[in-house]
Computed example of a mutant assay.
Amino acid sequence: MTRSHIPGILAMAAVVAASNVLVQFLFGDWLTWGAFTYPVAFLVTDVMNRVYGAAAARKVVAAGFITGVICSLIGTRIMLEGDGFTYPAVTLRIALGSGLAFLTAQMLDVAVFSALREGKWWRAPLASTLIGSSVDTAIFFTVAFSVSLAWIEPANDVSWAGDMLPLIGLGPVVPYWVSLAFADWLVKLSLALLALVPFRIIVRSLTKKAT
């Protein structure tokens, strides 16, 4: 690790830590505030990949993963009370889903970006973020809330996530957790497009400083 990598590492750690806090606060019926900060992690990874290379991007991902593990460990030890029950702020399934989704999606992002590095400037960050974000959403919500994976943490009742409701209140009837995942995915796709602007600006700025 060099000094030039430190800002990226700190940025990733800040994004992951902030998202772990903001995910506790609802935004409407299908989202949390964390849904709007977490996608910035892909922007950080892609900027590091473009400017410093895949090895540097992987170091940043590792820093984010370690930060996420620490946040999860803290969250599993914070006990909340509600409806006559005491339960951890972060369940085992959420911790596992979050860690697995982050590491898999971010490493995939690095690989896709590297494969498309020589194309047009927007192709690598857009494709890698869209693919990584989709995988992230699929892994996290499936592991954390799918009723079929209840055996991972039998004591954690997620039957509420299996309630059959219209997709985000409008579409076909699906398990509630699918609506949560779909809404989260739509936010990630939207932010992937918007992130191209800061990606271009930050990369140009860092590239000029390096010359």
Rank of each mutant, 00 (worst) to 15 (best):
T45M: 05
D46A: 04
V51S: 07
A54I: 04
A56H: 06
A56N: 07
A57T: 05
R58V: 02
R58K: 08
R58Q: 03
A63G: 14
G64I: 00
I66E: 05
I70E: 11
C71D: 08
L73S: 09
I74T: 12
G75K: 04
G75Q: 05
I78C: 03
M79W: 12
E81H: 12
G82H: 05
G84A: 04
T86F: 12
T86S: 15
Y87T: 01
P88E: 04
V90K: 01
V90F: 02
L92N: 05
I94E: 11
A95W: 00
S98D: 11
S98T: 09
G99Y: 00
G99K: 00
F102H: 07
T104P: 02
V110R: 02
A111S: 10
L116R: 04
E118H: 12
E118S: 13
G119C: 13
G119E: 15
W121L: 13
W122I: 03
P125D: 04
A127G: 02
A127K: 01
T129Q: 02
I131Y: 00
I131F: 01
I131D: 03
G132K: 01
G132V: 04
S133Q: 07
V135W: 02
V135F: 04
D136H: 03
D136E: 05
T137I: 12
T137W: 10
A138I: 13
A138W: 11
A138C: 09
I139A: 07
I139R: 08
F140M: 11
A144T: 05
F145M: 08
V147Q: 14
S148E: 13
E153K: 09
A155R: 13
V158A: 11
W160A: 14
L165V: 15
I168P: 05
G169H: 01
